[in-house]
């Protein structure tokens, strides 16, 4: 009988290391979209705090606590990561499982902002994007959620179907930045 194997979206495509920047895929973890019903934002934030110790993040922000995180991911929407949401949250919000829908890539290295600047039309400098930031924007033509926990680490979430393109384009940018540094 065939033995089925769980494959992550970027399976076999990463890691890639070029010129001091590494591109890898984060271990798969639960990702749930949490979208408050109209007028339930404050109640949801309290329920989140109670159940998981994390409130609902402000636009552009990410809150982390140990292995758990919640990142703002759009208008009235946040991604709860690392845990399945407590059933009590359903009273205040629509909860949808996004775990298999997103590719979670990790870019690390001193030149990581130069690499992302080739594709992302948002200022990711430390002044404009401090640790704990979450940005919805584009990577090339791909819609993306870009998380910055701190240091020289960025987590780039794109739709699962875009895993190949994302790895290809980010690798191209890594090569281009490394080539320029070598001049």
């Amino acid at each position: 009988m065939a033995e089925l194997m769980a494959k992550s979206p970027a399976h076999g495509l990463t890691p890639v290391a070029v010129g001091g920047v590494t591109l890898s895929e984060a271990p798969m973890r639960p990702v749930w979209a949490v979208m408050p019903w109209r007028g339930k934002g404050a109640a949801l934030s309290r329920a989140l705090e109670q159940a998981h110790g994390l409130g609902f993040p402000e636009p552009g922000a990410m809150i982390t606590s140990g292995q758990l995180g919640i990142a703002w991911s759009g208008l009235d929407q946040a991604f709860l990561m690392g845990v399945e949401p407590d059933a009590a949250l359903a009273e205040h919000a629509a909860l949808t499982d996004q775990s298999d829908a997103w590719t979670q890539l990790v870019l690390e290295g001193a030149a990581v902002r130069d690499v992302l600047a080739r594709w992302v039309p948002v200022d990711l400098s430390p002044a404009a994007c401090p640790p704990g930031s979450a940005r919805r924007s584009l990577v090339g033509h791909m819609s993306a959620l870009i998380l910055h926990p701190g240091g020289d680490r960025f987590e780039v979430l794109v739709f699962r179907s875009m895993a190949g393109t994302a790895v290809h384009e980010l690798t191209r940018a890594m090569r281009a930045v490394a080539a320029r540094e070598a001049l």
Partner: peptide
């Protein structure tokens, strides 16, 4: 109002 100044290609 949520994201700050953004390039028109996002819209």
């Amino acid at each position: 109002p949520l994201c700050g100044a953004r390039d028109s290609r996002e819209f």
